[in-house]
């Protein structure tokens, strides 16, 4: 293959691993010297990687994460151990000198000359260890807080998965209206369970305004899902409850007076059709 592959799917076939012999070698040798084809190959690999999501869901064995973290800590401890826990050289000297303690009186000044620096050395080691212990306790405390935070995240992800289960979940992309603040969001709406997951970002609103997400039912007036005031453009995700069984025909985010309104009054910022 001296030029680009003639068929676009050749990249996917390569990523899938089904090409053999000359076909495979030709694509490899061409891609190695062609930046455009290397990029296309990366995109094809990404698309083929999505097939992994077709595998039946199997839970990770209990304790697997902890085993990984122990392995990680083990590596760290192995690297750090000599610096933190190695006995100071003077301790060895002290041990060797312990046996002839009974002869101290006879040895006199020589003994003191050894004992004083050893004692001082041990004191320094004790202080260092005490400080080290203090630092370790602070780190552990911070890690406890982080673990609690991660547990909250995990619990949230379970709740999201619960919302997403079911035969008639609507996944609707909300797109920005022309001339309005930028943003991009998706809502996942399970009418049967009366739950909605919002996942997206939007430019922060002016300080006297709030964004308000609405479900527009097939029959009746818009229903407020929630009022929010992002202060950054980070993605955010949250779950809201609605009356069960409301069939949605659209979703919209409007800009409202701070705190929101009972019915939409401001301009539509992001909009998506539900059916």
């Amino acid at each position: 293959m001296s030029g680009h592959p003639t068929r676009q799917e050749d990249f996917e076939l390569y990523a899938l691993g089904v090409l053999e012999g000359e076909e495979r070698a030709a694509l490899e040798s061409h891609a190695a010297s062609c930046a455009e084809c290397t990029e296309r190959l990366g995109e094809a690999q990404g698309r083929i990687a999505l097939l992994a999501l077709g595998a039946p869901r199997v839970d990770v064995p209990a304790g697997a994460k902890e085993r990984l973290l122990q392995r990680v800590r083990g590596e760290g401890a192995a690297a750090a151990a000599p610096a933190v826990f190695a006995p100071p050289p003077r301790a060895t000297t002290w041990a060797k000198e312990d046996a002839p303690r009974a002869r101290a009186g006879i040895l006199g000044g020589w003994w003191n000359a050894v004992l004083v620096p050893v004692t001082l050395g041990l004191l320094i080691v004790c202080v260092l260890l005490w400080r080290q212990n203090d630092i370790v306790e602070k780190v552990i405390d911070e890690q406890r807080k982080e673990v609690a935070h991660l547990q909250k995240q995990l619990e949230y992800q379970r709740r999201v998965a619960d919302v997403m289960e079911g035969p008639n979940v609507l996944n609707v992309a909300l797109r920005p209206m022309p001339g309005m603040p930028k943003g991009d969001a998706t809502v996942h709406y399970n009418a049967g369970k009366g739950k909605l997951v919002y996942d997206g970002w939007i430019e922060p609103a002016p300080s006297d305004k709030s964004y308000q997400l609405w479900v527009v039912p097939k029959d009746g007036s818009p229903i407020s899902v929630g009022v929010f005031n992002p202060v950054t453009e980070d993605r955010a995700s949250w779950i809201a409850s609605l009356p069960e069984g409301v069939q949605a025909k659209a979703f919209a985010i409007t800009l409202e007076p701070a705190g929101g309104e009972d019915q939409p009054t401001g301009p539509q910022i992001l909009v998506g059709n539900g059916s």
Partner: peptide
């Protein structure tokens, strides 16, 4: 209806 943000991700 107000959203309880405290229930969301950290």
């Amino acid at each position: 209806m107000r959203i309880s943000y405290g229930a969301a991700l950290g």
